[in-house]
């Protein structure tokens, strides 16, 4: 039995080692890719037209999905929180509670997760399919820098557009929360907004706004990395799209965790 136990331990160590190796390979690959993004991004010539096109695709075309999700999120949060607050006779705190929850945490994180699904998978699949159909090679041999044209523009667009989407999502969530409040009470819009803005401070808004830039950057860089390094074949494209979403979602939570620690250190919590 001893040998069997040892063989199993050895086998399990082997698979653990290879899993760790895969994780380190992935982290190393993304780090190198990120360094290349800064190197290529800072060098002229800049692809302004493509950047604008990507801002339109990533920002404007994500609006319906982000907007609907945000509206539902605000409404659900309001309706579900009301009974608990009522128990304590604190239903007048509903607008403040929803505002702080949405602006500080739920708005940026849910918007980023929605975008990781929509934008991350779309970038991963698009670049992956360009890779396997040799379109990226075609750019390279025509003396065009595909990294600058495809990666730098998409990552920048995701980084710039996500905070905009977060602000819009926050606004829509708070507006639908106002509707949620009025399902059972009668609260004027002015009173509601007064309560919301009285409860919010810059220290609620600013860290959330800043971290949404990092969320956007993570979604862009992971989507591009996965697409750019897609393996041959349609299965590889599917895998790129899928893993872009998984890794970007994980990255969002890790960035969120770091942001919380950082704001805590700065005394902004």
């Amino acid at each position: 039995m001893f040998w069997r136990a040892n063989v199993f331990t050895f086998g399990s160590n082997m698979s653990k080692n290879s899993a760790w190796k895969e994780i380190f390979d992935e982290v190393g690959g993304i780090s190198y890719f990120t360094a290349r993004f800064f190197r290529e991004g800072l060098r002229p010539r800049y692809e302004w037209q493509e950047l604008l096109r990507q801002c339109y695709i990533i920002g404007y075309k994500s609006l319906p999905l982000v907007g609907i999700t945000a509206a539902i999120m605000g409404m659900v949060l309001t309706v579900q929180s009301r009974p608990t607050l009522e128990e304590f006779g604190a239903e007048s705190w509903l607008p403040s509670m929803v505002a702080i929850s949405v602006v500080r945490e739920i708005g940026p994180v849910i918007t980023a997760l929605i975008c990781a699904g929509k934008i991350g998978s779309s970038i991963g699949a698009e670049l992956g399919s360009m890779k396997v159909t040799e379109q990226i090679d075609a750019m390279e041999v025509s003396g065009t820098n595909p990294f600058k044209y495809l990666v730098v523009t998409r990552v920048l667009a995701a980084t710039l557009m996500l905070p905009v989407l977060v602000v819009l999502a926050d606004g829509l969530a708070l507006y639908s929360s106002y509707i949620g409040v009025n399902l059972k009470d009668v609260v004027s819009f002015k009173l509601y907004t007064n309560q919301v803005f009285d409860s919010l401070e810059y220290s609620d808004f600013l860290p959330a706004f800043v971290k949404s830039y990092f969320f956007g950057f993570a979604i862009g860089i992971v989507g591009c990395y996965k697409g750019f390094n897609s393996k041959k074949g349609t299965e590889g494209v599917g895998h790129s799209a899928n893993s872009a979403v998984v890794v970007a979602s994980l990255a969002i939570f890790i960035i969120d965790l770091i942001a919380v620690q950082f704001t805590d250190l700065l005394g902004l919590n």
Binding site: E126, M130, T133, E134, Q135, D137, A138, M139, E140, V141, S142, G143, T144, N145
Partner: peptide, 20 residues
Amino acid sequence: LDRMRVRIGFLFQNSALYDS
């Protein structure tokens, strides 16, 4: 290399047209 690549054309097997 980019300057040299301009002097060399490359026709890919599947044409590799940019489909967007």
